[in-house]
Write a protein that binds this DNA or RNA. Structure first.
Lengths: 367, 367
DNA sequence: TTCGCAATTGAATCGTTTG
DNA sequence: TCAAACGATTCAATTGCGA
């Protein structure tokens, strides 16, 4: 594609607007090869069954909107094929796409990206620092979502601001797992009733990292499932142009109002999430999983008065007590609490070694 | 499936052996519905077309004139379909499967799992604490791999040792992102030249968590891509039976040697924390029958707001309601459900005592 | 005004046994 | 087979209220 053609296409683009309508139709009306980056957060097809209550009997506000309902995997696949094809057409040859999803839909999206010739560059895990727990204790806490970053084709050039991401990460190469809190507090948009304006608003910090890392100032970022416009808001702050497409009028209104308040380089709120760092918590169970202590191995209290055995799940078992290193220590000492890390020792080469030494080893590895 | 049939199937299984051959053929030779857990770490190099073939050794009819991306995916998909179908057949109705992969193949595996009727329970991110950096600085450091945990079908039961995993995580619900170092150091198996024996040996810590969390002692764990036998080694340590399938003789030899050195942990160490759900049910009426509570005695809600009387048949009666401890609690709180055991208290020596204490007494006597 | 505790909430495929 | 009854289960963060 020639430079002239690219510029012509860009001039025909409705920049920094929210377009109403079905994203496939709207994208098909835009000029081919005209967009630098597409960020897409499509419906996840959650397939929820009944209601879910928290242990305190309060009801979980589920994502049960009509836009997330699909009759079958076949229907969802057709939908995915169609919007991805439309997205690919309007992407510049050196453009790229980000999609986000959960295990309900992300495997189908990823496979279809590959089928259509997109070239996956990374999958990125958004690790939520404060996810919703699994209330019934039937599965693991769903603590992450997956993003896929892909170029338009194998061998295509793509924008990657390596140094910018490295500085965002305190001088260390940015990894494929990003720890970012979910969107709540003041950032979470509310409607007139004080309820959340959109059930799945994404945090600006996520978009910030992704736009800084994979676009340049002046680039065009298109979002076919605009919602409340997080991608547009962050693009605007960072001096990129945006195009939003959204079917629901209520969401468009919220996004419009939000965007009117955004100023370029107005991003104080974003700096917070990257700075804080504390000593990582190391569960005792990790020492067992990693083979530093064997299930069945004996631990001895620092004062030499007590002996217990380690179990495969990282609990201890003594003559009349079982539980965590802290619980068992407290029980044996008749104390209200006990720091198991400084209380227990194990034997190596005839010597008593505090288990805290093993925790320090793990922490050293983590840095 | 009847108990007898299950036992018969188990007896026909070659337990704790490494079977030579193509995993699809070997799996098809095993009895249907006989395995508790499958762990699969399949090859994902989409370019290695020669690695893939059908059970009957016929060549898949791919678009194979020139090297062609879609042809390669079609080929890989056929391979995935075949081995997953074979795996599904030998899985017990209440069995489960774990697969692991990277962005090259995991989306195709996940989609095919869903297509075959497996029901995804969680996707899990193995977050590597010491990944290989991206030397060229062209992408993000690939710092994780993805696992998928799925039951055989929607609604099927599956084994999940919630409390054990919670213990491993020092009392906090286990999340879907697991931070575990890559396999190196003494754990990494070397060949006679001192080179690594297998390119993608998985850490035992990963398998430890997964086997403790989703199987019980005595379960059968099958691995169709056994490699150097990490799954078998950890299964053996943890008192599970394993079945390994591996095509390459060199890997089988390494695994065999490795497994011969593994010893099972003490039985006591293999017992893990269990939830209340696994304890025997005690009807509330027993407390009355045994004279622990007298008919006519008053119970008070934990929050102190409600008072009811115990009747001789083990039901409660309040001002405008009667029924079981659970029904009355739920009604008085206007809640969808209520655990009466933790909701009601009685008075002894002027103190409020939870009725659950009496249940614990009865359960203690039962042991 | 500030501190502390209680209440609220978030993309969720979130039971099992008995009769 | 199906309905009814039993009864197990939450983490981090923010907001709001009362002292």
């Amino acid at each position: 594609m020639t430079k002239t053609k690219t510029l012509a296409a860009r001039n025909a683009l409705p920049l920094n607007e929210i377009l109403a309508g079905d994203c496939i139709e709207v994208m098909n009306s835009l000029p081919e090869g005209s967009v630098d980056l597409i960020f897409a957060d499509p419906p996840y097809n959650l397939q929820l069954r009944g209601d879910l209550h928290r242990p305190d009997n309060s009801k979980v506000d589920a994502v049960d909107d009509a836009w997330d309902q699909f009759g079958s995997f076949a229907h969802y696949d057709q939908f995915t094929r169609d919007w991805l094809a439309a997205a690919r057409r309007i992407l510049k040859p050196n453009g790229a796409i980000w999609v986000i999803g959960s295990y309900h839909n992300v495997f189908r999206m990823g496979a279809e990206l590959q089928n259509q010739g997109f070239w996956i560059l990374n999958d990125v895990v958004w690790r939520k620092s404060n996810p919703m727990p699994n209330f019934r204790g039937k599965r693991l806490t769903n603590a992450h979502e997956t993003l896929i970053w892909a170029s338009k084709a194998e061998g295509a050039k793509y924008t990657f601001n390596y140094e910018a991401l490295k500085s965002l990460n305190e001088g260390i190469q940015m990894r494929s797992d990003w720890v970012i809190p979910i969107c709540n507090g003041g950032e979470r948009l509310k409607d007139d009733n004080g309820d959340k304006a959109h059930p799945t608003q994404k945090p600006e910090a996520l978009l910030h990292r992704l736009i800084v890392g994979t676009t340049n100032p002046g680039d065009v970022v298109l979002d076919p499932f605009f919602g409340t416009g997080t991608s547009g808001a962050v693009a605007k702050m960072l001096g990129r142009d945006f195009i939003g497409i959204e079917r629901e009028e209520a969401y468009r209104e919220v996004a419009k109002k939000r965007l009117s308040k955004i100023r370029k380089f107005d991003r104080e709120a974003l700096e917070v999430s990257t700075s804080k760092r504390s000593e990582p918590r190391v569960p005792f169970g990790q020492l067992v999983e990693r083979g530093m202590l064997r299930p069945g191995e004996e631990l001895f209290s620092m004062n030499g008065r007590h002996k217990v055995k380690v179990r495969a799940d990282g609990t201890l078992i003594g003559d009349d007590v079982k539980g965590s290193i802290h619980q068992v220590g407290a029980h044996l000492e008749g104390a209200p609490s006990c720091n198991g890390w400084t209380y227990w020792t194990f034997k190596r080469d005839g010597k008593q070694v505090p288990i805290d030494l093993l925790r320090q080893q793990i922490r050293a590895e983590m840095n």
